[in-house]
Nucleic acid binder design. Structure first.
Length: 532
RNA sequence: GGGCCUGUAGCUCAGUCAGGUAGAGCGUCGGACUUUUAAUCCGAUGGUCGCGGGUUCGAACCCCGUCGGGCCCGCCA
């Protein structure tokens, strides 16, 4: 059974109405690791709906979290905002400096700045969750009930955290973090509690009171999380493995949730996505591929497939090079198969059946449109990569595909794919192995590997190419003429040509490529080969 | 120190929850197609399931141990 169905089955035992939560702190540029969080939630919700339940996906924006440090992309003036909540400080402008104008006029915050592009990426990938901004939830008093229970029972909370996490809390620890005189959550000392006020002194020598019902502070993360489960009625939540560890925040959270008076959600721990060869994705180190960048290169359904086809417990290595080609081609091949028919075959082993089922579900989950079943484009990623390189104009690509009978009219999906393909080819991520490279000088080794007859072809080619019309047909005719003159078959002609032009034994059809190359350079290359 | 995830074919991984003859895709090799847009089709190839014990008629799967990789137990998803 596919992992999303396993999860749906678990949910079915709890009830038939579900809210699947995801949550991210908008502290910096979002990356595809965050995409796994959202897509995992999205796929669970889809699986639940497929199983006949009512399921909604929500996205908690943790903009009540404080700025932890001055990241490399920030101006040092952000030093003053450390400890301040992400939803209440200005966004960085192009130079990394606080953009006060937008903040004052439009209320454009640090959190908004990083959230917006991510939401756009989500839309493209077919995920439109209900947003739950956390800072606003505090200000609206949604945390009041849980905050009161926590502040009324600090000993009980402390006991849970210390026992479950095995960590000792400071003597002056209190289950509420007030905002200080400057708006920071750091460096305060709690001096007393009088519902609904938490009294404090800060590091500036000021003192004051924080109303826990009005968002004048927040719950520490280990309480904040279970509190949200309650008033948002969360029944399921996938989260990164950091939260899933024994003694981690889910473990303490599920006990604290009971204290707050509700059941913890069904958990699902997922592994990180790392960048192939570059280690874990991290916003602060700049070692990221942003969702927008990824989507510029990769069709959304392929990105979905990557997540759908990997069990959550498996770490994913995101490879923007050959790995992507293989992934996309596997996806293409799967769309062309008829799983229902294959599953009715006799003598299917249980193992094989499981494999077919999982592939079928993963494919369905990869579709950007939930109602839509992925249709086969019957054009492999490889092939498209080749055409995009050979044909600078889109129309020529479609003509070529029409001629080979693989298409009548390009669908919007295909046009979209070609657009992304061109971006990919132009980027640093495009693998060298896939690049069509025409030699600038004869490759001696490749030419020496030819037979005498084949080398003879090159000699004649020198002549026939000079006389050729510089078009696909003209060049093809020149190849043929050279073969006839050398009295060898076309197989030898092509062997010789690939050795000369690409230093390979085989390759894509040469004539169309050469017709797009500069004639003089090719003739020069041919001439030089006869001396080699 | 405590815990979680992970190790299966050259590669990417299924299969472990319900023990019953080791699976898929890619790759590689061969053949076909009398020029193949790195194509397509067909066929073949391929694994002491990290290692050692135990339970069992039977273990990739359950139990114990051990080694390697990743990670968590800090108010950092």
């Amino acid at each position: 059974m596919h992992w999303s169905d396993v999860m749906a089955q678990r949910l079915a035992q709890r009830g038939d109405k579900h809210i699947v939560a995801t949550g991210i702190t908008p502290s910096g540029e979002f990356h595809i690791g965050h995409l796994r969080e959202i897509l995992t939630g999205d796929m669970i919700a889809r699986a639940a709906r497929r199983a006949g339940m009512d399921a909604e996906l929500v996205f908690v924006v943790d903009n009540a979290d404080p700025l932890r440090k001055v990241y490399p992309f920030l101006d040092e003036s952000y030093e003053a905002f450390i400890g301040h909540q992400l939803g209440s400080i200005p966004a960085p402008n192009d130079e990394g400096k606080p953009d006060w104008d937008r903040f004052n006029n439009e209320g454009w915050s640090y959190g908004d700045h990083f959230l917006q592009p991510f939401l756009e990426a989500l839309r493209q990938i077919g995920v439109v969750p209900r947003l739950l901004p956390n800072l606003e939830a505090y200000q609206d008093g949604k945390f009041s009930k849980a905050a009161k229970i926590a502040c009324d029972n600090p000993a009980a909370i402390r006991e849970i955290i210390e026992r479950v996490s095995g960590r000792e809390l400071a003597d002056d620890w209190f289950p509420w973090q007030p905002l200080d005189s400057k708006g920071s959550l750091d460096g305060l000392t709690i001096t007393g509690y009088d519902y609904p006020l938490v009294h404090w002194t800060d590091c500036h020598g000021e003192s004051g009171s924080s109303n826990i019902e009005k968002g004048e502070g927040k719950l520490p993360w280990r309480l904040d999380w279970p509190a949200k489960w309650g008033f948002n009625h969360i029944t399921c939540e996938p989260f990164g493995k950091d939260h899933g560890a024994a003694g981690g925040s889910y473990d303490t959270g599920k006990e604290i949730a009971l204290l707050f008076g509700h059941e913890p959600p069904a958990p699902l721990t997922y592994e990180w996505i790392s960048l192939k060869g570059k280690g874990a994705m991290s916003s602060s180190s700049g070692n990221t591929v942003g969702p927008m960048e990824a989507l510029r290169l990769v069709p959304p359904e392929i990105l979905r497939f990557l997540v759908a086809n990997s069990k959550p417990s498996k770490a994913i290595e995101f490879d923007t090079g050959m790995g992507l080609v293989n992934l996309a081609d596997e996806y293409e091949r799967l769309t062309a198969r008829d799983f229902d028919a294959e599953m009715t075959e006799e003598n299917l082993s249980r193992r094989k059946l499981v494999q077919l089922e999982d592939a079928k579900v993963a494919l369905a989950l990869s579709s950007v449109d939930e109602q839509d079943v992925a249709s086969s484009t019957s054009i492999s990623f490889r092939h498209m990569a080749l055409l995009a390189q050979i044909k600078p104009k889109d129309e020529d690509v479609w003509t070529s595909l029409r001629d080979s009978g693989s298409l009548t009219e390009p669908t919007p999906q295909l046009k979209d794919r070609l657009k992304r393909m061109r971006a990919w080819i132009a980027s640093e991520h495009f693998p060298e192995d896939m690049r069509v490279n025409i030699c600038t000088a004869p490759d001696k080794e490749a030419i020496q590997a030819l037979t005498d007859e084949q080398r003879l072809v090159l000699l004649h080619l020198n002549q026939t190419l000079v006389e050729a019309d510089w078009t696909t047909d003209g060049i093809t005719a020149a190849f043929k003429a050279a073969g006839e003159a050398a009295e060898v078959g076309m197989r030898d002609v092509y062997r010789a040509c690939y050795a000369l032009f690409m230093a390979t034994e085989r390759g894509p059809r040469l004539a169309p490529i050469l017709s797009n190359c500069e004639r003089g350079a090719i003739l020069e290359l041919t001439q030089a080969s006869t001396g080699a």
